[in-house]
Amino acid sequence: MQRSVLVLVIMSVIMLAFLPWIASDVMLQFAINTLLLATLAQSWNILGGFAGYVSFGNSVFYGLGTYGTAIAMAQFGLPFWVGLMLGALLAVICALIVGLPILRLRGPYFAIATLGLSGVMGAIVSNMDIAGANIGLILPLTRADPMFYELSLGLLVVTTVCVAWLSMSRFGMALIAIREDEDAAGTMGVNTTRYKVAALVLASLFTSIAGGIHAYWITFVDPASAFDPTLNVRMVIMAVFGGSGTVFGPVIGSFLLSTIYELLAFWISTAAALLFGVVIVLAVLFMPKGIADLALAKEPGWRYFLRNVREHRL
């Protein structure tokens, strides 16, 4: 990584860390949401962007993180950090158990199987008494938005540092080889199963912690929001919009899309989701490799957009 980029990133993080002292309550809440979403997108990027395994089921890990924290705090009165660890542990165990069979699938089969898993998990949780069944759980109330903000920021930084390390490591190279051609990677000595499962575990870890933070912040969890299928799609879109398989793409994509959505929701509340859909369609059409690729493109804007259409049209 270039030194100038590094300096810029560190400066931005330091400036962001001071946000709670200047931002309004509403803005801080928006910021927490955005940071958590960016963490989800960045975690998705580990398996989806680097290894090319498009998961629509990371909400399973998010939900387990949410519920691990909620159960620990609401049912057993344990401290927050124990809850976070419990949630993370549940998610990692789930990733290990589920990963082996499911990572044998490829392409759309993997994508939809993961989507299915999140549905199955939601149904299981909503039938468990310890998880408050359909009603959900209420966590102890804490009014400490600045703390949640700094936690979320810290988590995003850790996740991104991990991805940056990944992009320069042997592990990352294995994932990229798997993305480019899994069979060829295997014959070249890459233990594809091990690296795929490791990537899933890593993704599940960060995703579940984000879920745990969100649960304590909102102080309420229920199956519908914890295993929300649209959350899956949102994180994928943010990662792809920014540039999947890059270090900063998913973060930038999340920041931009969250802001766009928030502004749309502010100006024209009913049509926000509609316009969001339009943004997705246009983004896929004109810049399928994301903002990161657009930023590096040699030709000016419109020619770049046309080239993408030309390359992919029939």
């Binding site: 042997r170 990229i176 080889a177 070249m188």
Partner: peptide
């Protein structure tokens, strides 16, 4: 079967990283 999105160097690096 080259890895299409990788440079020539990176294609060969994969072999060196995970070979014999």
């Amino acid at each position: 079967k080259p890895f299409p999105g990788l440079s020539v160097l990176d294609n060969v690096v994969v072999g060196a990283l995970f070979g014999t």
